[in-house]
Write a protein that binds this DNA or RNA. Structure first.
Lengths: 141, 141
DNA sequence: CCACTTTCTTGACTCGGTCCACTTTTTCGG
DNA sequence: CCGAAAAAGTGGACCGAGTCAAGAAAGTGG
């Protein structure tokens, strides 16, 4: 990821320590919750309000700089890989989340079998399963 | 859907007025929130506690009788079409939710391009877009 | 450097959902 | 049928994630 300040400038956003730290945190720890990112930001700049973090995450997600994913039964996660509409694979046991590219190409799966007249702009895909570690743990008993 | 009481019996669940009414409500109004279903159940049997509804929805979803979907930014929705792993198409503007069958077959999309060693058991797909009505409304301006 | 806009802070609050202690129903063996 | 024992339901407190709102503190542009 490029310099956080540049990214903010390019999107016409004011440049603040909080936003820069949030961007760094997302980039450094993708697939983290707002809470975890707040922690990370605090270790970097000392203090932030939870609101500032939500604010930054919200506007950055709006601008398409970062991406928000909201898996069922979990708080929202944020990642800096945005704009390529890749998908996610989540472990039901430990919650580990990994990126997956879609087999069908660049802007994948954007065609439903029957679109019912909708204009579709995004296909969100989450694969649920069990990660290798948890599989091994289960096998051991 | 078959007789609610039979369904409950088949899954070894006690037969209660609340559960029957919940099943009927889900069947009658698919893609509803727990709250809306509680309303529906109340008109049918007079009163239920919110807990009883959550309880019934939870256990029925566990048994695979109904399916729970949790779109980003919305409370969970429930539907009685379960077990065929179909997908959903949701309007960003009005929230209308419709079912879509997957183009690729019976148990669709269960293969990620790179499974990272996970054992995948479900592929959850949500198409986001704008429904015909909202498109028309936007065009009128 | 100053006015003005944007952002941050703090703290209350909402919403969806869960927990818990207790009462009511169901179920099932006699 | 009847009467435990088990399963569900009730009501109310509670929780976590996220939002709202008002005032304080930057950032921005002339």
């Amino acid at each position: 990821m490029r310099e956080p300040a540049d990214i903010l400038r390019e999107h016409g956003l004011s440049i603040t320590a909080q936003r820069i730290a949030v961007l760094r945190a997302v980039s450094h720890r993708p697939h983290s919750t707002a809470d975890a990112l707040t922690e990370e930001v605090r270790t970097e700049i000392g203090a932030v309000s939870k609101q500032a973090v939500y604010n930054a995450l919200g506007i950055l997600a709006d601008k398409g700089v970062i991406r928000r994913i909201q898996p069922a039964g979990s708080p929202a996660l944020y990642e800096d890989r945005a704009g390529d509409n890749h998908h996610h694979l989540i472990c039901r046991t430990c919650g580990k989340t990994v990126d997956v590219d879609c087999a069908t190409g660049e802007t994948p799966c954007l065609t439903a079998s029957n679109d019912a007249g909708f204009r579709i702009d995004e296909a969100e895909v989450i694969y649920w399963g069990t990660c290798p570690q948890c599989l091994a743990a289960a096998a051991r008993g």
